[in-house]
Design a binder for these strands. Structure first.
Length: 107
DNA sequence: CTCGTGACTTACG
DNA sequence: ACGTAAGCCACGA
């Protein structure tokens, strides 16, 4: 029956993502630092397998250089840009302006 | 159990 | 800026 097939790794990623408030974003690197791993790709993979929405807002996760990265397996997905823009984040040319200002740290 | 591939990356030259 | 290497997880054979 397993409605959800979340693994221990994904569970950690989701826990962090859920801590991200509205209007804030984070990067794969930060998540990796919090998890203590360097498998940034694995993090993105966990988001892509994310069966919940918007319980797990993977659209709030971007690259460390300010680019949107991808969404649902697609790069610079228009949906991701729109969602972030609605949260008050300015995006230009598939890139976040002053994304550091919106960066959310798991302190 | 082992191997190979894919994945929303990052770092380096 | 581009290409390559490193590194972590999940899935299929």
């Amino acid at each position: 029956m397993q409605k959800t097939m979340t693994t221990a790794f994904q569970d950690k990623v989701y826990s962090l993502l859920k801590q991200i408030p509205c209007g804030k974003i984070t990067t794969y690197k930060i998540i990796g630092e919090q998890l203590g791993i360097k498998g940034y790709q694995a993090i993105g993979r966990a988001c892509r397998e994310n069966p919940f929405f918007p319980t797990i807002p993977c659209h709030r996760v971007i690259n460390s250089d300010g680019s949107l990265g991808g969404y649902q397996g697609r790069l610079n997905h228009p949906r991701k840009i729109e969602l972030l823009a609605k949260e008050g984040i300015s995006i230009t040319d598939s890139r976040i302006q002053d994304f550091k200002k919106y960066l959310h740290t798991f302190q």
